[in-house]
Design a protein around this nucleic acid. Structure first.
Lengths: 258, 258
DNA sequence: GGTTGACCTTGACCTTGGGTCAACGTGCAC
DNA sequence: GTGCACGTTGACCCAAGGTCAAGGTCAACC
């Protein structure tokens, strides 16, 4: 008797598994066909059509719960819904393309976390013979800055780029890094702090908060968190920083505390 | 104290939810950072890096279970895996594009189920003033044929295309369809069967199984299922078909039974 | 007319990548 | 000291099926 296809044949025709077909039946997404004498579902071509329609929508990412309504809707609502699905699909495709394109950045971690401009600064630091340790610390600071105080991230980079053109700053900074291994009471620290503060004061325009930046109530503490990052690993560096900040405050600069 | 970011800050930085971060910890995909005095997780930049790497891979569709191993792998295995991910992502994108492109076929069901060539044949049937009912039945037959006997689907279409150029066949077929409403014992049925059989025998080359088609053991019954599709709704059509088949067999043609 | 093997039936639980809710502890600002 | 946002764990929920179990059917071969 020509009673129609079995579930396996129907599933193969629609390009889904048997389990999926039964799942659709259970969700009421595709009506169950009639059974034959032995209880087998028998699929006619209208069932196949419905199945293919459902699978196509599901494959396009439409939630199964919506598909039933959609297929039963009047043509204009259906057409509108199709447009919507098409749009969402296009978005998803573009998203995937973007993800694919960013994948290769993963091979170098820093480039995954920081914008190109910051990476360039770090590369220049390495070229200028700063120790890898120092570069790594700066990288950490930049990552933290981006996460914690994004509103000053760009001005911060501008500062760094400026200092990199100043050989004297480079020299001072390298000495400051070397101070990490000094005794916290080393008398050279005070001289170094004075020199650094003088250098900063000579370029005080750079220190001002850029125009347009909202000073959030917690910005200061976040900024401090960035500035004092890794200080706990070296008391001498902590003392150096404290001295420099005190000298800046004495000169009337508003340095955030803590 | 500069102990690092809280989970909410880390999650925001990586572009995921807090829950996702903890999920990754539980799966061992991202190591848990140290806790501060109050039990809060505190994220350093290496943790952020790992988190961003994990999220990027996960977003690209890599199963979470694989990501941990991947990120711990040596660079060349990691690069190979990245290539693989890139390839899968490209496949997925192409698949989505294809699905998007087939979406619009859903507005007309027949076009979603049948290839263009079959749709063209159905359109010609409608143009030739076959009743919508007849066209619908033919559509069902084509869908069934495609599902059940795909190996003869193209030759079957070729036959149909041939007959459509024969005005006499068109006339006979329309009379045959009209027979549906006749009494099964109507004497005109026999004459119609003779005319149809003669027409088929005059083009017997078309009836042969095409070269290269494997005659599966069940092809005959499937073929019969297609041919006798909808017969149960009209005893006169059933009788007409039976008569035609008998005449063909008498002429030495191998017509599958049942 | 058995037996084999492919296919069908239902039902219950498993999976992935998280979301949601509850019940409770912390940190900070006013 | 009182909100209020944020943190902690744990337990359950979700889509969209997959897997496994325990049988019933069907067709074919011997």
């Amino acid at each position: 008797m020509a009673t129609g296809l079995t579930i396996g044949q129907a599933a193969a025709f629609a390009g889904v598994t048997i389990k999926t077909v039964r799942h659709y039946h259970r969700l009421g997404l595709v009506q169950e066909p009639e059974r034959d004498g032995s209880g087998y579902r028998r699929y006619r071509s209208t069932d196949l059509l419905r199945l293919v329609q459902a699978r196509t929508l599901a494959g396009a990412g439409v939630p199964l719960a919506e598909i039933g309504d959609l297929l039963d809707a009047d043509p204009e609502r259906f057409a509108a819904a199709l447009d919507d699905v098409h749009r969402r699909l296009t978005e998803r495709i573009e998203d995937l393309v973007a993800r694919r394109d960013t994948l290769h950045r993963l091979t170098r971690g820093d480039r995954a976390l920081l914008p190109d401009r910051a990476c360039a600064v770090l590369d220049r630091l390495a070229d200028l013979d700063f120790s890898p340790d120092y570069v790594a610390t700066q990288r950490e600071a930049l990552v933290l800055a981006q996460a914690l105080v994004p509103e000053v991230f760009d001005p911060f980079l501008t500062q760094l780029e400026h200092w990199l053109d100043d050989p004297e700053w480079i020299e001072l900074t390298k000495r400051g890094w070397a101070a990490m291994s000094w005794d916290p009471d080393d008398p050279r620290i005070d001289g170094l702090a004075s020199a650094l503060a003088a250098k900063l004061l000579a370029n005080r325009a750079l220190l001002a908060m850029p125009n347009g930046v909202q000073y959030r109530s917690d910005t200061a503490s976040r900024y401090g968190l960035v500035n004092h990052h890794r200080e706990e690993q070296s008391p001498s560096i902590a003392r150096l920083n404290a001295l420099v900040e005190a000298k800046l405050r004495a000169a009337g600069i508003d340095v955030p505390r803590q």
